[in-house]
Simulated scan of single mutants.
Amino acid sequence: MDQIKACRSFVRAVELGSLSAVAREQHSTQPTVSKTIAALEKQLGVRLLERSTTSLTTTEQGKRFYERAKRVLEEFSEAVSDARGLTEKPTGLLRVNAPLGLGQLRLNALVLEFLELHPEIEVELILNDRFVDLVEDGVDVALRLAGSLPPNMIARKIASAQRYLVAAPAYLARHPEIRRPEDLASHRYIGFARPANGEVSQLSGPGGTVQIATRSGYLVNSSLAIRESFLMGAGLGICPSWLVHDLLESGQLRRVLPGWSAAGQEASLLYPSRRYQSLRATIFMNFMTERIPQLPGFSAPHFGR
């Protein structure tokens, strides 16, 4: 049995979720792929996959073997490329995870630009606002915004974004004027739903740093929904500059208390803390490290804080 071929079939079966998909990719047949993986399981003495007529799932042993086998295949591929002098042409699938709002508003265009530069790389961009387990979900690179970073991960800080108060002109016209942070207590606040945050916000400005109690009638776990709520004049709130930069430029939103701001938001690239990092992942991270600070609302990262 060709162990490299068998491992590759198993890894792709996990990633594609279907033996038929692997067969199509390898220009083979589903029974052939099934027999290859069955032979691998027999040699290992463990069941790697649970098969049914409608689904394909990994066993606990299969999950652990997948992570190790994937790294082995990546190293083997890079070794072959290096021997052939092809390391300047990275290939293969790259799974990337990022927040939904940032992904739709800013990151999607960058990924397409990256693919134009590296057409032999495939990117699967997974957008959601939850903290995924990079290893368990098979993610090569993740982009994270602020918050505590997962353990056992390597983090590279690549950009910073200011955070400040914004509201629509229509909202401001209908409510009492805001001249100082204390005035915010009587206004309708829209914020990101984080149970541990409560309803206390911290602002820094000419008078130092103050904590203000805000009256929240609406909390939502989507930055895109927050952006839309501001536009609808539903309230005011603190948000990162990348989320509303275009709306401020067009006058659809205005800064409230422009001399005051909240703590900035840091953008970091994360990848599993393992010895080997594929060439395609390294090139992707270098590209994002250069391009994200150039996006509207972002700047080079601030260190030493």
Rank of each mutant, 00 (worst) to 15 (best):
G92A: 12
G233P: 03
A196L: 09
I283F: 02
V111G: 02
F76Q: 12
F303C: 06
R156M: 11
A155K: 00
M285F: 08
R24I: 07
H27A: 13
Y164S: 07
I121V: 14
R68D: 09
S52E: 03
L94S: 03
E120H: 10
I4M: 11
H27P: 02
D82H: 09
G217R: 13
R215A: 15
R227S: 08
L56F: 11
L100P: 06
S148F: 05
L93G: 04
A146T: 12
A170Y: 00
S81D: 14
F298L: 07
G205Y: 07
P169F: 03
A170P: 00
L48G: 01
L219A: 13
L231K: 07
F230Q: 02
A13Y: 05
T282P: 00
Y271Q: 04
L247Q: 11
L19C: 01
G191N: 06
A159R: 00
R254F: 09
Q43S: 12
R180Q: 14
S204A: 12
S268Y: 00
P296L: 05
I283A: 02
L172D: 06
L243D: 00
Q202R: 12
R280H: 10
S241G: 01
K5R: 14
N197T: 10
E290H: 14
V256D: 02
E67F: 13
I4C: 07
A213I: 09
Q294A: 14
R179T: 12
T36I: 07
A267Q: 02
G208R: 07
N97M: 06
L56T: 03
E122N: 13
G264N: 12
S28W: 05
M288S: 02
E41N: 08
Q3S: 08
A79Q: 13
G17N: 07
L93W: 06
R274T: 07
A225L: 14
S28H: 04
P181A: 03
I4K: 10
E88V: 15
F298G: 03
G208S: 07
Q277G: 01
R215Q: 15
G208C: 07
E41L: 09
Q211S: 12
D129E: 08
A263S: 12
S273A: 15
L125V: 11
G235H: 05
P296F: 02
L40E: 00
L257V: 01
L224P: 05
I190W: 03
A225D: 13
E41D: 06
H245R: 10
L115Y: 05
D133G: 05
E75L: 11
L40D: 01
R254C: 14
G45M: 01
L149T: 12
P90H: 06
E266C: 08
P99G: 09
E177Y: 06
W242H: 09
E228A: 14
A262G: 06
V166D: 01
P99M: 06
G101E: 04
A21G: 11
L56A: 06
I238W: 01
L125N: 06
N152Q: 15
I154K: 15
K157L: 12
F284N: 00
E177G: 04
A6S: 11
G92R: 10
K63C: 05
F192L: 08
H175Y: 11
A196D: 14
P119H: 08
G45Q: 00
P301D: 06
I154N: 15
Y271K: 01
